[in-house]
């Protein structure tokens, strides 16, 4: 299976690559300006990044095109997740209380992404912005005390977004979340 990581300039982009590699997936980090036609993959991870998507969406390259046209599953993380919400007509903006480091993630809908995980676990965060209004045809999957949308899912296609960072060592069950996403990619092949 082939799942690439789209680099939006995150501190943990390379961690996403590492987690996928450890799960024996063929993977590569690609710039977010890569044309969609060049991505012959079974799934895509949109990394987090320095861009504050509400303020400088033009730094998010072709993320919009991937979300619009891709035939494969997509997992957006942090900035990737926020951009996803804006792209599909929702809203993202500055967090009332930004989260850094350990946060308790409460799962509201298990869905495929959190399958087999406990209802609450420790997620590691680093964000100034968050999804404030879910787009149409999206459902929220998880929340935390200070952030209503820790995870969301598009009902029409296998597209997911998470605000916390399943790719870092300090997030509990991060590997399982990636495995669950890879299962979705597998089913979609």
């Amino acid at each position: 299976m082939k799942v690439f990581v789209v680099d939006n300039g995150g501190q943990w982009t390379h961690r996403e690559w590492r987690v996928l590699r450890y799960l024996d997936v063929e993977t590569k980090i690609v710039p977010n300006t890569t044309p969609l036609e060049e991505l012959e993959v079974d799934g895509l991870v949109l990394s987090g990044g320095a861009p504050r998507v509400g303020l400088d969406a033009d730094m998010m390259g072709n993320n919009g095109e991937y979300l619009e046209k891709a035939g494969f599953p997509i997992l957006g993380i942090c900035a990737g997740h926020q951009f996803m919400a804006i792209h599909f007509g929702g809203e993202a903006g500055p967090s009332g209380i930004p989260e850094f480091g350990r946060t308790q993630i409460e799962v509201d809908e298990e869905d495929e992404l959190f399958e087999g995980l406990p209802k609450a676990f420790q997620g590691w965060e680093s964000h100034n912005d968050e999804v404030t209004v879910l787009p149409e045809d999206f459902i929220g999957l998880a929340h935390s005390n200070n952030c209503k949308c820790q995870a969301m899912k598009y009902l029409k296609r296998p597209i997911y977004g998470v605000q916390f960072h399943p790719e870092v060592e300090h997030t509990e069950y991060g590997n399982d979340i990636f495995k669950n996403f890879l299962n979705v990619c597998e089913e979609n092949r």
Binding site: D7, N8, G9, G10, Q11, T13, H14, N32, G49, A50, P51, M59
Partner: peptide, 16 residues
């Protein structure tokens, strides 16, 4: 190693 160039930044990545 990886954290050295990641945290040094460049292009989209901020310099930590």
């Amino acid at each position: 190693i990886a954290p050295d160039w990641i945290e040094s930044g460049g292009d989209l990545r901020d310099t930590i």
